[in-house]
């Protein structure tokens, strides 16, 4: 079984070659701009004119569209419907279902939130698709991030695909023992315990083993650590980060100005 350690897709592209911090700042910056902007169309503009083209620049358009349509769109769509139905704001009622009233305001509110979240998740998706987690972390620790913190982040990024692979094996093992995971919903619900417990137990055991393994390699040593790989940080990277920072500051200023 092939185990993918992260969402990272290995390609040779301009986006891949950017400094990891730049890409992180980019994802954070786009998210902040999307959330802080006073104009409702900003998140949409970010999605269509920045993130979508970036996915082509990074040669990960297929993976990105896959994630966008199969994961982000359904999730934000759900959010949109829920908020449109349950948000008790506004008076201009458009229509109502039973006790739920959909107003122009609640619709606008839901739309705004859904597009913001779409922009946030998709910008981080691009970031994760083009940045190897260990590259990001070695760059950040080099810049002074405590390595404990780096470890927490990197293990979080890695853990989901790892757990997926593990869950697959556990499902296979329990099905071999006659566990019915395919038929009725009731049976499926009952099948959860035998699937979840080995996953949780196994992960806890792994945490301990990992801790020992990294400590054996001097994780908490106070000496300055050297890095095997130099991660390039060009002047373009620096400029891009400053531009994004300025944009975020500008959008905050506009928001204050308009309010």
């Amino acid at each position: 079984m092939r185990e993918r350690l992260s969402f990272y897709v290995k390609r040779e592209s301009f986006l891949h070659n950017l400094n990891p911090l730049t890409k992180l700042v980019l994802a954070l910056g786009l998210t902040l701009i999307g959330f802080l902007s006073p104009w409702y169309w900003t998140p949409l503009a970010i999605i269509f004119f920045i993130i979508a083209p970036l996915s082509f620049v990074g040669k990960v358009q297929r993976d990105f569209l896959n994630a966008a349509f199969r994961l982000i769109l359904p999730a934000t769509g759900f959010l949109f419907i829920m908020q449109a139905l349950f948000q008790p704001v506004g008076k201009t009622e458009l229509f109502s279902i039973w006790f739920l009233h959909v107003t122009r305001e609640s619709l606008a509110y839901a739309f705004e939130n859904a597009t913001r979240i779409f922009a946030m998740v998709s910008s981080f998706t691009i970031f994760l698709l083009t940045t190897h987690p260990s590259e990001l972390m070695s760059d950040l620790t080099h810049r002074g991030l405590p390595s404990q913190f780096a470890y927490v982040i990197i293990s979080t990024i890695q853990i989901i695909p790892q757990m997926q692979a593990k869950a697959q094996t556990i499902i296979a093992a329990q099905r071999s023992r006659g566990l019915d995971t395919e038929s009725s919903l009731f049976k499926r619900a009952g099948a959860l315990v035998p699937l979840v417990s080995p996953l949780v137990f196994g992960s806890l055991v792994e945490v301990e083993e990992r801790a020992i393994a990294i400590e054996a390699r001097g994780f908490t040593s106070r000496h300055t650590k050297t890095s095997l790989r130099e991660i390039p940080d060009s002047s373009f990277d620096k400029a891009l980060r400053w531009i994004l920072l300025l944009l975020v500051v500008a959008i905050i200023a506009v928001k204050i100005w308009l309010s």
């Binding site: 094996t169 556990i170 093992a173 099905r175 071999s176 023992r177 006659g178 395919e182 055991v205």
Partner: peptide, 21 residues
């Protein structure tokens, strides 16, 4: 289906931690 074949074929996985709960 696998659950039916399990009546005839038993499979002991390599890693016991993946099946004990």
């Amino acid at each position: 289906p696998v659950a039916k074949l399990a009546v005839h074929v038993g499979y002991v996985f390599q890693n016991p931690d993946e099946q004990l709960f």
